[in-house]
């Protein structure tokens, strides 16, 4: 029996257009996520058309089939976590500046690792939850 290994690639486009990639493992390089540094983040399944991406310049995101639970891969059953949290505020004068926070990462084998990122702020929090996935 031949064990098939599937790989994923993180690709981050910085504000200056520089593209940084990680291949073969799903991990995050926190140094990329400095305030205002992100333009786009992409997780691509190598040798496959599936991906999800988020464009921080316009809030658009795209999930091309990669959101299904339990994707088998080199890290075991890998479930992408991808969530856009919108915060709308209003006071007496009318709408105030809205905020968006993206949660992205993965769950595998009952463990969760996510990043909490705001386009305006950059990395807010890295969460590794081994107790309550």
């Amino acid at each position: 029996m031949v064990e098939q290994t599937e790989y994923y690639q993180w690709e981050v486009t910085l504000a200056d257009g520089t593209v940084k990639k990680e291949v073969a493992v799903v991990k995050f390089e926190l140094a990329w996520f400095t305030p205002g540094a992100l333009r786009k983040l992409l997780l691509r399944k190598i040798n496959n058309s599936k991906y999800f991406s988020v464009d921080f310049t316009n809030g658009d995101f795209d999930k091309n089939g990669i959101v299904e639970a339990g994707i088998p891969g080199s890290l075991g059953d890998f479930t992408p976590v991808y969530l856009k949290r919108n915060i709308v505020r209003v006071d007496e004068t009318g709408p105030l500046g809205n905020r968006v926070i993206y949660y992205m990462g993965y769950k595998k084998a009952g463990q969760q690792k996510t990043l909490k990122i705001s386009p305006a702020i950059g990395l807010i929090q890295e969460n590794i939850d081994y107790e309550n996935p």
């Binding site: 959101v67 969530l83 856009k84 949290r85 919108n86 915060i87 505020r89 006071d91 007496e92 004068t93």
Partner: peptide, 12 residues
Amino acid sequence: NQKTFTLQYDEV
């Protein structure tokens, strides 16, 4: 006093 109300929702 003026109040600010916040509404938050998740979009996936």
